[in-house]
Simulated scan of single mutants.
Amino acid sequence: MAHVRKARFAPGTVIRHRRFGYRGLIFDVDAVYSQSPEWYDIMASSHPPKDRPWYHVLVDGETHTTYVAEDNLEVCSETKSFDHPLLSRLFTAQDGGDFASRHIVN
Rank of each mutant, 00 (worst) to 15 (best):
S77Q: 09
R8H: 14
E70R: 01
F20L: 15
F91R: 01
A31Y: 01
D41R: 11
R102G: 08
D28C: 13
A69G: 11
S36G: 05
A100Q: 13
G61I: 07
H64V: 07
P11C: 02
F82K: 02
S36V: 09
N72I: 01
V57G: 07
V32D: 04
K50S: 08
D51L: 04
I26T: 06
S88D: 15
V32I: 10
L58D: 06
E78H: 10
R52Y: 06
V59M: 07
D30W: 02
F82V: 04
Y40F: 15
A2G: 01
A44G: 04
P48T: 05
T92I: 15
F91Y: 08
V75C: 06
C76F: 04
P48D: 12
R5D: 12
E38K: 10
D71P: 00
L90G: 04
D83V: 15
A93P: 13
R5F: 02
V14H: 03
P49S: 11
M43H: 12
V29G: 02
R102I: 11
G21K: 01
S101G: 08
A10Y: 03
S88K: 03
H3N: 07
V29Q: 12
G96Y: 12
H47N: 10
P85F: 12
K6E: 15
R18G: 06
Y22Q: 02
N106S: 12
H103R: 14
D60I: 01
A100F: 07
R5G: 02
D30P: 01
R102P: 06
F82Q: 04
G12R: 04
G96N: 13
F82G: 04
S45R: 12
F27H: 13
S77G: 11
D30Y: 07
A100H: 14
G24P: 02
W39E: 06
D28L: 09
H56S: 11
A93R: 11
A69Q: 06
T65C: 11
S36C: 08
Y67T: 01
R102S: 07
W39S: 00
H56G: 03
G24D: 10
K6H: 15
T13E: 13
P48R: 06
W54L: 07
G24V: 08
P11N: 00
V29D: 12
P49I: 01
W39M: 04
D51Q: 07
D95G: 09
T13R: 05
D71F: 00
T92A: 13
Q35K: 13
H3F: 05
G21N: 11
F27K: 00
V57W: 06
D95I: 02
G24S: 10
F91H: 06
P37W: 14
D95L: 12
E70L: 00
R16P: 05
G21E: 12
D41S: 10
L86Y: 10
L73I: 02
V59Y: 05
W54R: 03
V105L: 12
H3S: 08
R52G: 08
L87Y: 05
T63Q: 08
V75Q: 13
A7W: 02
M1A: 14
M1R: 08
E78D: 15
I42L: 12
R18C: 14
L86D: 12
F82R: 02
R89K: 11
G97D: 13
I104P: 01
F9G: 04
V14T: 11
R52I: 14
L90A: 03
S88F: 07
D41G: 10
P48N: 13
V4W: 05
D28Y: 13
F27Q: 01
F27T: 03
R52D: 15
V68F: 01
P85A: 09
K50N: 08
